[in-house]
Amino acid sequence: MKLAFSIAKRFLLSSKGQTLLILIGIVIGVSVQIFIGSLITGLQASLVDTTIGNSSQITIEAAGTQNYFTDDNTLFDQLKNDQRLTAVSKSFDGSGFIVLDEDDTYPVLMRGFEFEQANQIYDFESSLVEGHIPASENEIMIGTNLAKDLELSLNDSVNFLTTSFNEVELEIVGIFDLGVASLNKSWMISPLNNAQKFFNEENQLSAIETQVDDVFAADVIAEDIASHLDDNLITTNWKDQNEQLLSGLTGQSISSYMIQVFVLLAVLLGIASVLAISVVQKSKQLGILKAMGIKDRTASFIFLFQGFMLGLVGSLIGVAVGIGLSYAFSFFVKNPDGTALVPFNLNIPFIVISFVIAVVATTVAAVIPAKNSSKLNPIEVIKNG
């Protein structure tokens, strides 16, 4: 084995141009694989974060036609202690109207939260454009689009009319921008107990909203949570509600895998063909070595070691180049607001797997040349020159 490794190393160094050509092919193949894989993974993470990053991923709500269910601290505490959930928040929703004048109203959705918990999901503190988060009775915050449409400003007062014809005067203490026009235009947010009081639904909830550690396991976690709930409660999850997004992500993954496979196949065919030519080029040396007593098995290992060494060095350089390309893409390709179009995503497990596959594949690519070398007849090789 040591002799085969030494001869393989000498053969590679004696044909520097050929060795460099193979290395370039491996580097390009592995770097493209790392770059495309990281790009798709980063894009998917960005899409998921944009779509559901600041929203409920598993929601517990009343079953059937009921709008509300009784606030149960036992259930809430159980969910808070569930290690699979990263955030748990109570919420209360009620439809109503902003009274503009005697004959004109504007429909809005009153949402009540306990902000300490809700901030972990909706990040209201970072979304505030002006003012502060409501804390006292009759304080609310509204979205930027709603403020613009109704020409409302900080510290203005509005009359809010519920669907049960309860009317209350509210003070705007904050204006938020959640990045979604429909929410900025329709949500009116207050502390949970205030919203419940406006609708005469004390101790009632519309939903318990949660986020999970593994977003792609949300459907499995939701099903498990549902199995422990009363019959009057159900769970919904983001995967069931975003089937088109999931289809798009699946399509991206499949296209990424196909590109990576074809790139790897091209590299392997190149390595196999160049090493096959190398067997012919080195046939005289191999014939002499066999005549001196080298076994067929040792001759085969010469080319297997060549494939392994080329794969190891080429894959290491390819991984470095691929990571560099991914970083450069995220650094130079920006959105209009200056953020990265696709965030840099260093997926260590994916990189390690890609590296191992590349090394194993390049070694396997040397199997056919290795078999050819073992079939060489030393007498015929030496005789024919």
Rank of each mutant, 00 (worst) to 15 (best):
F216W: 09
G143T: 11
H132Y: 14
S255I: 08
T59D: 09
I189F: 05
G248L: 13
G143A: 08
A320F: 07
M141L: 12
S206Y: 06
M292Q: 12
D231E: 14
S283M: 03
M110Y: 10
V261D: 08
D93N: 14
N184V: 02
E167I: 15
I60L: 13
F97D: 12
V220N: 07
L346K: 06
I24F: 10
F76N: 10
S326E: 08
V319M: 00
L100H: 11
A218E: 04
L150F: 05
G248S: 11
T236H: 08
A63L: 12
T144F: 07
A218D: 00
T210A: 13
F308G: 05
A276I: 03
T59H: 07
Q117F: 14
R84W: 02
M258T: 12
T86F: 11
I172C: 00
I22V: 12
S253W: 10
V158Y: 00
F11I: 01
L178S: 13
S46P: 05
F344N: 01
I323L: 14
D49R: 14
A276E: 03
F76E: 13
N200L: 15
S55R: 10
V129F: 11
I225F: 06
L128R: 08
V263L: 05
A4Y: 00
A63R: 14
F355N: 05
F69E: 08
S136F: 06
L265R: 01
F355S: 04
I142G: 06
L20F: 06
P378Q: 03
I175M: 03
S15M: 02
A299K: 00
A320H: 02
S46V: 13
K284S: 04
E223Y: 04
V88S: 12
L79W: 13
V342L: 07
L13I: 11
N138H: 11
A87V: 13
I221L: 10
F113E: 09
P191V: 11
I121D: 08
L23G: 04
A226V: 04
Q196F: 01
V321R: 05
I26D: 01
V280L: 14
E209Q: 15
I353T: 09
S6D: 05
F305P: 00
N54I: 13
V129E: 14
A328G: 14
I254T: 14
S89W: 11
Q211S: 15
S6I: 00
V267M: 02
Q204R: 10
G94V: 12
F301N: 11
L12I: 03
A218Y: 03
L161N: 15
F216Q: 10
D224N: 11
L154I: 07
L150V: 09
T298F: 04
I254Q: 11
I208K: 13
T298Q: 10
N237W: 00
I7L: 02
L316S: 04
N194E: 11
L150A: 10
D49Y: 06
V108I: 13
G37I: 04
